[in-house]
């Protein structure tokens, strides 16, 4: 019997900006069709980790494998093709404010020449419905939407190409608790419906428990704990316990600057 190949496998990932080492040998496995939540404090390297996997930042060293293939060492076109199968929800939505909502949602489909503009507009309406928005929202510009609606549109854009892996960067940041729960619910539904593998980074514990099957904590550029998401609040790891319970006292010393 052969062991299952992780959908995403990261080994020894390092990245520094000048003298500051942000990622210091990250090792992480995400198994197919699981939702991995990566938690960690501000500036711990969570977003840099995602950007390295997405190819937006070039790491200094390490291995990033998607479906067993090292995207850092494959031909550029092949790496782009592998990454095209990843959907990404950015922290602030990152909607294109010069385009109407429908074109934002269908942008990836149009870019990959999968569909013409008329069909894209119809498809965008269907995808908007999947995230609980009326098709008429497609005619609005992103600036006319509330924060919660912008997040839904960004989620619709992320799932439009039916990716087999999805990344979520702080999906509930800036939302009220009810809207945060709604977005988390939509994320769980979309990931299940598409049969995707998901990686979410967050420091919202309620969101982490709702989204994740598995969890890992990043601290000072390293993964210091990983396990089932259900064990997050009672991990037995002093750093994780301090973080998840929001205690001031503990092994993690926050840098205070005046």
């Amino acid at each position: 019997m052969t062991a299952a190949v992780p959908k995403l496998r990261i080994r020894g990932l390092r990245k520094s900006f000048g003298d500051k080492r942000v990622l210091d040998g990250i090792d992480l496995d995400v198994m197919p069709r699981t939702s991995m939540v990566v938690i960690g404090g501000s500036g711990s390297g969570k977003s840099v980790l995602l950007k390295c996997v997405l190819g937006l930042i070039q790491p200094d060293a390490g291995v990033i494998e998607i479906d067993g293939q090292d995207v850092l060492r494959m031909r550029r076109a092949d790496a782009e093709a592998a990454r095209a199968r990843i959907g990404m929800l950015f922290q602030n939505g990152a909607l294109f404010d010069s385009l109407p909502v429908w074109e934002n949602v269908a942008f990836g489909l149009l870019a990959q020449r999968r569909i013409d503009r008329r069909a894209a507009r119809e498809r965008a309406g269907e995808i908007l419905a999947q995230v609980g928005l009326a098709a008429s929202v497609g005619e609005l510009s992103p600036a006319e939407l509330s924060g919660g609606m912008q997040k839904r549109v960004a989620l619709a854009r992320a799932i439009a190409a039916q990716p087999d892996m999805m990344f979520f960067d702080e999906p509930t940041t800036g939302l009220d608790p009810i809207m945060g729960a709604v977005i988390d619910g939509l994320i769980v539904d979309c990931v299940k419906r598409l049969g995707s593998t998901a990686v979410a980074i967050t420091h919202d514990m309620a969101s982490a428990r709702r989204i994740g099957d598995a969890a890992a904590m990043i601290h000072r550029g390293k993964i210091i704990w990983s396990g089932p998401a259900s064990a997050l609040m009672d991990s037995g790891n002093p750093e994780v316990d301090q973080f998840t319970h929001g205690r001031r006292e503990g092994p993690i010393q926050m840098e205070l600057r005046r």
């Binding site: 950007k51 937006l56 990843i86 990404m88 950015f90 990152a94 909607l95 294109f96 990959q112 854009r157």
Partner: peptide, 12 residues
């Protein structure tokens, strides 16, 4: 606002 990064993630 990460829109340029978003373009890259959308095969553009």
């Amino acid at each position: 606002t990460d829109q340029i990064d978003a373009l890259s993630t959308l095969s553009t």
